[in-house]
Nucleic acid binder design. Sequence first.
DNA 1: AATTCATATGAATGTTTGTTCATATGTTCA
DNA 2: TGAACATATGAACAAACATTCATATGAATT
Lengths: 113, 113
Amino acid sequence: MADIHPEHAHIIEQTKANMPSEEILEKTAEVFKVFGDKTRIRILAALSEGEMCVCCLCDLLEMSQSAVSHQLSVLKAARLIKSRREGKQMYYSLDDAHIGAILCTGISHVEED
Amino acid sequence: MADIHPEHAHIIEQTKANMPSEEILEKTAEVFKVFGDKTRIRILAALSEGEMCVCCLCDLLEMSQSAVSHQLSVLKAARLIKSRREGKQMYYSLDDAHIGAILCTGISHVEED
DNA sequence: AATTCATATGAATGTTTGTTCATATGTTCA
DNA sequence: TGAACATATGAACAAACATTCATATGAATT
């Protein structure tokens, strides 16, 4: 760690004061981390078209049921999606509109290049 | 991979048709992945208050110069930040307003709980 | 009750990744 | 030109992670 330059001290203090808390920033990073995987993004993109059962997701993504289920559990733990059972099947959907909005923001950023 | 249920086939096809391309989704995941680290989020949050040199960031984050520089290079490679040199120092700033917007969206989601 | 279908989950494995340490590059100033 | 300062970068290492395989749970159907 470098020594602090006196003339920088107040910039540092002021920036620190205006930034969100460490706790908020840590949680924010955790949320983005969950979005930061191709399989999970594909799941979220699919669910933003409407709820879907696990086997549909497997077919759509052309991935094993196990791999999909593991990622669904990550998404669920992060409260990005929710589930409901209907008979033997589980239907998953985005937890709230906010999730779709975050996804769209990211996609828009990529598309605008 | 499970067998495709005939009654699901059209849902799958329709969802597939409405989803962004694989390429877009992959790039989107890559972008979110870059946001998905505490150190990088802290850097972005600091830079959203204004441009800052590397040593300021080190002091503010209380991290080694090397660790900060490595993450700055990740952020730069992903075109989330840009840099300019002023004498011996490098000043970093958010690449465009879009980056700040994505960050805010994530922070808001965390704060609203 | 037993079988089948749909999904979840634990352990193992190979890969990715963030930090550290050591060192290189580039700039200023004497 | 040489010393000092600011930043970048390569290699190494430990920790985190995504998928696979095997198996468990849970619901429907016979």
